[in-house]
Design a protein around this nucleic acid. Structure first.
Lengths: 343, 343
DNA sequence: GTGAAAGCGCTAACAC
DNA sequence: GTGTTAGCGCTTTCAC
């Protein structure tokens, strides 16, 4: 039975006293490395066990000026992307012995940004991972921000010199998607984009446009309509496209949720997928394989993105610890093409 | 530009010195409440601003024996459920001034459980929220655990006396789903369950069975097949059901992902939904409204679940703080029926 | 109103 | 090998 009794915390002093040694010795036993005679060690360990002593990481962090804690700032945790990334971050942090201090953002006002940073820094996080999509100019503060005393790593941000980031290669993913359509003999490739204020949406659209142009095909603005990632908006965007570009033979849709609406609406109107209209998505939702028809899509490995992020930030922290310069670079994770029935 | 310069932290002493007051006065200024003369306050505040002083929460936690941090233990973060719940937790924690220290579990061995608890407690969390489904006997340790020195709140756990928990009322949700089918004149209601080792799956199945029985209808074991929540398993389970119970007129499927497979396979076989087969799911995925046909389902409010959890644990923390007894109770969140085309 | 002293729980640095 | 001393950055207590 779990009790929440108010027993006072067992401290290093208690252990020292009961074991008849100094606190220093207890500390040495707890932290392995330094030498303690076998006998003393055993005695101390017995007392630790008996009293249920747990060293306070807090006190240790205070003196070591290091908390083995990573700050994680998220935005839109309720969406699949950020939470899958977070899972990767959690896994890798665990492996490397770090804990995660989380903060969910609800806007990008300068005021809240400062507040979030402050609360993280006040708790002595060793580094910060920024898990928020770049929308409009919501990341511009990065370039003119006051100095932050710990390393910061940005995910899914447009590369900026002097700043470290990791992102899926959205452009390349879009190229692969579009090329796949072309390779299957499609010539009239439409696009439903995400909201153009999103950097990721912009990249995906650019991949589509440039691939068509390289192949000597048209990619005018009318062949692309804009959604907001939701299935609802996908339906709207598809209807617009049907008017603007009635003889298209394929669509690259910027995410699977919007692609789902395209499949559904096509089915309802008797447009056969993929025969009359090939459809390819982006994201590879777990459900996408079970859409009707199953959805060909681009899979981005968000788990890996999160893992990489932790790897990188820990390297940065260590460099800082050793007074080495902190290398900053922008890194891309390559997505992969998943071929199924819809294209 | 973000620099990670090694400037030493600005401490309360620095501020005191520059402002020409004692550290005490600075502390009083930072913590509002106590009286400081207007003039002194202004001078101190100016210095704080100028030096960019941020009080160390760490040091404060150490002395106050209180961290304003909640431990959150998750399992299966990559699935939608836990991450939506986490979002609710993050939101509410923010409102109440708490931070979140996260730990993702990868198994339920006694060893890792202890380790997770220890690392949370070592960082002085004020309370712990346990966000992991009850599977098999993976929660039994709760009843015979050594005393944990802070309040713990469990989500999605079978009610246990003396222990606090919050969960969706899965049973009631299943009752609503089944009743909806009966009210629409269905008499031969099948069920695809989740893995029966999951408490939530068990509850949903019980709701189905008991509702049928109360209506004087049959609910034998053959009318129910078992999946593992995935779309793949849903397909299997549906195929088995088609053999075992070919004249069923409706199915209550334990989650939307499996229901998706039922829709797809029905479509492929020319079974008309809902005319020949009514289908109802559970969870209300964002995509469910865009399945073909759109899926009638039970919506559980996981955001609210998370918010309630924080509310509750903070109450428990405060009670403990005031040396009051900590009330323990099991609370249920009611799901709602979302009627769409499939039933 | 303000300051001085003590101490939260731990470890770094130096004795012995 | 082990103990002593000092101090991380803050707040509490009690003076004045």
């Amino acid at each position: 039975m779990i009790l929440s009794d108010r027993k006072k915390r067992v401290t290093i002093k208690d252990v020292a006293q009961v074991a008849g040694v100094s606190t220093q010795t207890v500390s040495r036993v707890m932290n392995k490395f330094s030498y303690v005679s076998g006998e003393t060690r055993q005695r101390v360990e017995a007392v630790v066990e008996q009293l249920g002593y747990r060293p306070s990481t807090l006190a240790r962090s205070l003196i070591q000026q290091r908390s083995y804690t990573l700050g994680v700032v998220t935005f839109g945790l309720k969406f699949l992307g950020p939470s899958r990334t977070l899972n990767g971050i959690a896994d890798q942090a665990d492996k490397l012995g770090y804990m995660l201090l989380m903060k969910e953002l609800d806007n990008f006002e300068k005021h809240s940004l400062n507040e979030v940073m402050d609360s993280l820094l006040a708790r002595q996080v060793d580094g910060i991972i920024w898990v928020a999509p770049e929308i409009g100019n919501n990341h511009d503060w990065v370039e003119q921000s006051e100095s932050i005393p710990v390393p910061v790593l940005f995910l899914a941000m447009r590369p900026r010199t002097g700043i470290s980031s990791v992102a899926t290669d959205n452009y390349q993913g879009a190229v692969m998607a579009t090329q796949h359509l072309l390779e299957n003999g499609r010539k009239r490739v439409a696009h439903i984009s995400g909201p153009m204020s999103w950097w990721e949406a912009e990249e995906r659209k650019r991949g589509w446009r440039e691939t068509l142009e390289k192949a000597g095909l048209d990619a005018p603005e009318q062949f692309c309509t804009e959604g907001n990632w939701s299935s609802t908006s996908g339906e709207q965007a598809f209807l617009q496209l049907l008017e603007a570009y009635p003889n298209m033979d394929s669509i690259f849709v910027a995410n699977d949720q919007m692609a789902l609406s395209v499949l559904r609406e096509s089915h309802r109107r008797g447009i056969r997928v993929p025969e009359q209209l090939a459809v390819i998505g982006f994201d590879n939702l777990p459900e996408s394989a079970y859409f009707y028809p199953s959805l060909t899509t681009i899979s981005q490995d968000l788990q890996l993105l999160g893992e990489e992020a932790v790897q990188r930030i820990v390297e940065m922290i260590q460099a800082r610890q050793n007074n080495q310069p902190i290398p900053s670079r922008s890194q891309f994770i390559q997505p992969t093409l998943i071929v199924r029935e819809s294209a």
